[in-house]
Design a protein around this nucleic acid. Structure first.
Lengths: 225, 225
DNA sequence: TTAAATTATTAGGTTAGCCTAATAATTTTT
DNA sequence: AAAAATTATTAGGCTAACCTAATAATTTAA
């Protein structure tokens, strides 16, 4: 279709991830996401609007057009497939993977992407547990269950994370809440809504309500361990 | 070290491939290689000279500096490793591979390249049989000799394979023709040109003419064993 | 509801990497 | 060795993607 530059792709991806393709993102927010100054973002947003990839309202922010969403989902697909490749096949260290995947995502070849997906066994989650859109841009159904949705004492396992920035991943590692970890919520602290967890039937941890919204889980049967 | 842009990398690669790192290349020749106009090449060559990657003589052409050669060899290494990956692991069609590898070669991460090389089994030849420089920029010395080139009873050792896909590697393993194996051709079967080998002076094996073209060898002295 | 603070945009500049057209140097041919 | 042909360079322009500094719009607070 139309040519979309690597930088444009990164902007579209960041807008999608920030807004889930629904809401409006403001210049300053987008600037923080792409690590550029506001003036540069205004520039770029105008270019993307001219290409019909988003709708821009001066002083109010912008939101992805249908075309922009489609393009963003392709970039996200590429990024996450490469992440999985780098982690699983090349065993590259976490802290380097994101940067390399960001470079790789810009290579826009349908053949490459679909062959890579095939090679990886058409995965639906990247190594952080983030869902990988399929070739049509559709996300796999994760169940969308967060820790916050769990009833007290309901056994569950960690399925993925909403955000996979380095800081967050280091945090969940310190919490011992890596992918597939089994745990249950044992109490909710009334005054700030933070949650007390029992991890692998051994360790106790307290996490904030906000963190509890960022971790996806799968329900387990009571006897499943 | 210094940052070398994707375009600069491609220029260095093309100069190296054209001159083998030794001779001078003229503006027009380089323009043909990189598919740009002469004026653009003059521009770029000046930039590369300023970065000490080559030596430029106005109106006479340029040649790679030591630094430029080192950089070029890294690009060639990346390009050929990716080609092998695309061909062998992703089974992408020949006609698409070169373009995709040219995009991929610009991703300059030592970790990525060495992990990729490891993943591919530290190959010495790309799928076209082109030699892959090692991490220090040294080309393997193939001598470009295939089993098929050997004279009867000429002692030789296995040096590398044109293709290093799993199936082929399993096959050579079954044949006892792993890297460094010593052997000689003892006869050629007339009707289908297949070859009879004597391996390590013990085992006899018959391989097809096609297989004999896919295995690179080194000559050995008669008494070398 | 005006003043202050925040946020967004414009104006103008930079670098990389390409281009065309004009000019200059070199080489070849007569 | 001068004329012609070839090749290379310069001059000037363009786009993408950034930047800073100045200005304008919007929101928040007094």
């Amino acid at each position: 279709m139309l040519p979309v530059t690597p930088s444009e792709q990164e902007y579209l991806k960041q807008i999608y991830l920030y807004t889930s393709g629904k809401a409006v993102i403001h210049t300053k927010q987008l600037a923080a996401q792409v690590k550029a100054r506001s003036a540069s973002v205004t520039d770029m947003v105008k270019r993307l609007a001219k290409k019909k990839l988003l709708v821009y309202n001066r002083y109010y922010g912008c939101s992805l057009s249908k075309l922009g969403k489609t393009e963003a989902l392709k970039v996200i697909r590429r990024h996450r497939l490469w992440k999985l490749f780098l982690a699983e096949k090349l065993t590259i260290d976490w802290k380097e993977i994101h940067q390399i995947a960001t470079w790789l995502q810009s290579i826009d070849s349908d053949t490459l992407v679909e062959k890579l997906s095939m090679f990886l066994g058409h995965p639906v989650l990247d190594p952080h547990g983030e869902p990988i859109p399929d070739i049509y841009g559709k996300f796999p159904d994760t169940g969308s269950l967060e820790i916050l949705d769990l009833k007290i004492n309901q056994p569950a396992s960690v399925f993925g994370y909403r955000h996979s920035d380095k800081e967050f991943l280091q945090y969940v590692e310190r919490l011992d809440l890596l992918i597939n970890t089994k745990f249950q919520v044992i109490s909710i602290i009334a005054y700030d809504h933070s949650l007390e967890l029992l991890i692998e039937k051994k360790k106790k941890r307290i996490i904030s309500k906000e963190t509890a919204q960022k971790i996806y889980v799968r329900l387990l049967e009571k006897d499943e361990d």
